[in-house]
Simulated scan of single mutants.
Amino acid sequence: MENHISSDIIDSWLKAWSMSRELPLPVKFKSGLKVDVGFEKQKTRYVFTELNDDFIQLSKDINEPWVFLKVCASPSEVKRHVLKKWIVQPQGYMMSCFHPMTIPDICLHNDYKLEITNYNSTYVIKVVTQKGEAASLGRLILVDELAVYDRILTDDNHKRKGLATFLMKELEKIALSKGISKNFLVATEEGKPLYESLGWKLYCFYTSIVIPL
């Protein structure tokens, strides 16, 4: 795990996250960042690179449901500093690969084909069956010389066929074609082993809390 968390990298990652969803770009909020998300179950998100007084005070001030506070810290650290009204969400892992990935030579089976689209600085790759059924999907957003991988998903009926690995390879090709080899993403517990197998390292823990209804 990295010893130093770069606020520039977190800023670029959150900018990419917002661009991918076509949301307003992050704005500064004290020592952190704020995004007006506007979803029913995620109205706003605040992101902090450290568990500091700004984060702790904000957690005391907010009573509204579906406002997410997110911080580069472990769940145990966060729990010690926030009130019980906050519910810790499933663990996230910020991961980095600041060099080309270690990806095996893999080909797409004839049962599948690729569909590639893009908008602003976001590239979307879909792996679909020959009948057009979505099997795997992922996004790449290029921001500030950083390649951000987002919403990498594989349908349950198509898992363990190497589709996610192939998808990552194709997304990386786009980044490398633009001269970018500094890669970043947020992984779930389920996705983390895949990225580790491709040469990614844990950058920092990423913990989210929210007051649900």
Score class of each variant (00 low, 15 high):
I103L: 08
I141P: 14
S76W: 02
R21K: 14
E40W: 02
F98G: 04
I141G: 13
V35M: 10
F48N: 00
K41Q: 02
N110S: 15
S18T: 11
I87H: 07
K113N: 12
S96I: 14
K43F: 00
S59C: 13
I87A: 08
P104F: 11
K126T: 06
K126C: 07
L51Y: 04
G32V: 03
G32R: 04
E40F: 01
I87G: 06
G92K: 11
T102D: 09
D11W: 01
D111I: 11
I62G: 06
T129Y: 00
V35K: 12
G132R: 11
D144C: 05
A16R: 01
A134P: 15
L108F: 06
A135E: 02
L33H: 03
G132E: 10
T117H: 15
V143S: 04
K79T: 06
V143R: 05
D11Q: 00
K113I: 12
E64W: 03
D61I: 00
I56P: 12
E64N: 03
C72A: 09
I116M: 13
P100W: 12
A16Y: 02
L25S: 07
I125V: 07
A73C: 10
F48M: 02
S12Q: 04
C97W: 09
G92H: 09
F98E: 08
V128Y: 05
G138K: 04
S121V: 05
E50C: 10
L51V: 01
D54F: 00
S59F: 12
F55S: 02
F39L: 09
H99T: 15
D61N: 04
N52C: 12
F55R: 03
L69E: 06
V124K: 15
V27P: 09
I116P: 08
L108I: 08
R139I: 07
P26I: 01
Q89Y: 11
A135D: 01
I62E: 07
L114V: 11
T102N: 11
